[in-house]
Nucleic acid binder design. Structure first.
Length: 254
DNA sequence: AATACGGCCAACCGCCAGGAG
DNA sequence: TCTCCTGGCGGTTGGCCGTAT
């Protein structure tokens, strides 16, 4: 199957024409971010790492395009940036994710979707790439096993190992409800979705949730996004004839 | 011991947004 | 206002490694 870039929308064609007068449909759509000839690809060697570290230690981050030449690296600027951000930065936390980190990722993903950089921004020392990989390799599977659709955080009708749920119960478990389940104050945090599934008893009073909708975010951009997300969720929920309840709020940060 | 398979993760690719000129 | 350049982002790939057969 040809890459999707072979199917060009009119505006992309226009862009392509601007970019290159030698455009034809056999060549890749875009100019590479840098001159690929003479640049290394693949895994970084220790020497390359050291050069990058040394350079950034002296000159600081930024000017990624000119950095490789200045640092004596045969890499493209993007590659240098990625290597630094995802691996070489001194404040990077390596190793397994703690349970609370995992819980936080799930909660944030429920609110933000695949905005990995924003999610990673809430996890000190973690990179977006790391969070994304962890989500795809661990959490996604875990949620699926629990019968939760990792894309929308809703319960599937027939979870893999728990057995079929009462359809009415399942329908009532929309995003907001699950967020409530996930945001209970006990130590298990999000994992409580599992315990909820296991006892097959929906939390009583779902239709009458009385929860305070406040989220404490230290930085404003993410706050705006969360607020947006909440408004959307609220409108969805209140449009549901059967589910007229107040949208609960995650108290993510205290 | 050899091969197949699956998971993990670093790295790449291409698109997009924003700033500069 | 338009165009170009750059950095940032999310999706995807490919290689390595451990485990199963």
């Amino acid at each position: 199957m040809p890459p999707s870039s072979y199917f060009l929308s009119p505006c992309l064609v226009a862009q392509k024409v601007r970019e290159s007068f030698t455009f034809d449909f056999e060549t890749p759509m875009r100019k590479p971010c840098c001159d690929k000839q003479g640049t290394n690809k693949g895994a970084w060697s220790k020497q390359e790492d050291q050069k990058l570290i040394d350079y950034i230690r002296i000159h600081g981050e930024g000017c990624w395009r000119s950095l490789p030449k200045a640092a004596g690296l045969h890499r493209c600027g993007k590659s240098c940036r990625l290597r630094w951000i995802n691996y070489l930065r001194p404040d990077i936390k390596r190793g397994n994710f703690a349970q609370d980190e995992e819980d936080l990722i799930i909660k944030l993903h429920a609110l933000l979707g695949n905005r990995w950089s924003l999610i990673a921004g809430r996890l000190p020392g973690r990179t977006d790439n790391e969070v994304k990989n962890y989500w795809n390799s661990h959490i996604k599977r875990k949620l699926m096993k629990m019968g939760i659709d990792p894309n929308n955080h809703k319960l599937n009708q027939y979870p893999h190992h728990v057995g079929p749920l009462n359809p009415t119960t399942t329908n009532s478990m929309d995003v907001a409800c699950k967020l409530r389940v996930c945001s209970t104050d006990n130590d298990d945090g999000v994992s409580d979705a599992a315990s909820y599934l296991e006892d097959e008893t929906p939390p009583t009073g779902i239709s009458n949730l009385d929860l305070d909708l406040t989220i404490a975010f230290p930085s404003s951009p993410i706050k705006n996004i969360i607020e947006e997300s909440q408004q959307k969720t609220a409108s969805i929920v209140t449009n549901d004839e059967e589910e007229q309840y107040t949208v609960p709020t995650l108290l993510l940060f205290r």
